[in-house]
Design a protein around this nucleic acid. Sequence first.
DNA 1: ATATTCCTGACTAATTTAATCAGGAATAAC
DNA 2: GTTATTCCTGATTAAATTAGTCAGGAATAT
Lengths: 148, 148
Amino acid sequence: MKLSARGHYGLIAMAYLAQREDEGTVPLKTIAMAEQIPDQFLEQILFSMRKAGLVTATRGPRGGYKLSRPSDQIKVGEIINALEGAIAPVDCLHSDTDQDCCVKTESCTTKFVWEKLRDTMVDVLDNISLRDIVERGNTLIGELGVKS
Amino acid sequence: MKLSARGHYGLIAMAYLAQREDEGTVPLKTIAMAEQIPDQFLEQILFSMRKAGLVTATRGPRGGYKLSRPSDQIKVGEIINALEGAIAPVDCLHSDTDQDCCVKTESCTTKFVWEKLRDTMVDVLDNISLRDIVERGNTLIGELGVKS
DNA sequence: ATATTCCTGACTAATTTAATCAGGAATAAC
DNA sequence: GTTATTCCTGATTAAATTAGTCAGGAATAT
């Protein structure tokens, strides 16, 4: 039940962009450097973010990435979904019909457990926006002092 | 964010035992056969269950496994915990101090997201017992008719 | 005795994930 | 129009994890 590095890095990068949403574009290398993400790996990740319509990119000198929408309109759920596919603790949750996993055995009495888990996870992630993360970060800094 | 086969099979096997909790011990092979789980793999899994104190085993002819407690006192969370370790979407959630992941970058403003997700997941899984699964299964059978 | 069933570590195979490589295309600055 | 910068994108390799098997042993009921 672990998040992949893709998802982990992805959210960090998006939060980085959110924190600078009023400052125009940010080049990939800047993010990679600041957050210690291998930059060719981050390239893959931001490519996915662009395909998902969550960021826009500009090429050439002074180019880079920025959020495609205000940070309060981008939910963590969308990001993770774009990077890792739909959340589903168990594969057989995908099919609308029970075909795949419930035909042969009676084991699918357990299925509702994973459905409930999935629904709860989706609910949590769809209710946190990038802005929430930025604000939370600012609050922490205010309370505890900046760290670096 | 996928459950491993260990966890998936494990819950199925435990639900199987729960459904027969008044019938004495059930041999591993019976479960493996019924639920289509490779039996040497199931052996590993039930071994873990025993080490975690969730089942008791009897050797020899007419031996087998049974739940070590009434099914309503065994939560899904315990089972998954024993089979996959503590739930933690991101590794740095383990350490009580921030040492591991938050020193170098400001990326840990995202940490609370994973904390919240973890807490919610734990909450869901700790509030479903094996008996809930059995009852749910019986209800479904009553409503929809038995499948096999 | 013997058949049955669990015990347990070591091992192998398959899959997934992380990361790198490579070459290209667009664009701003000069 | 040349150059440096930055994103684009598929292919490939390397590392790690997971799934599953092998092998031999120990306990126990009949």
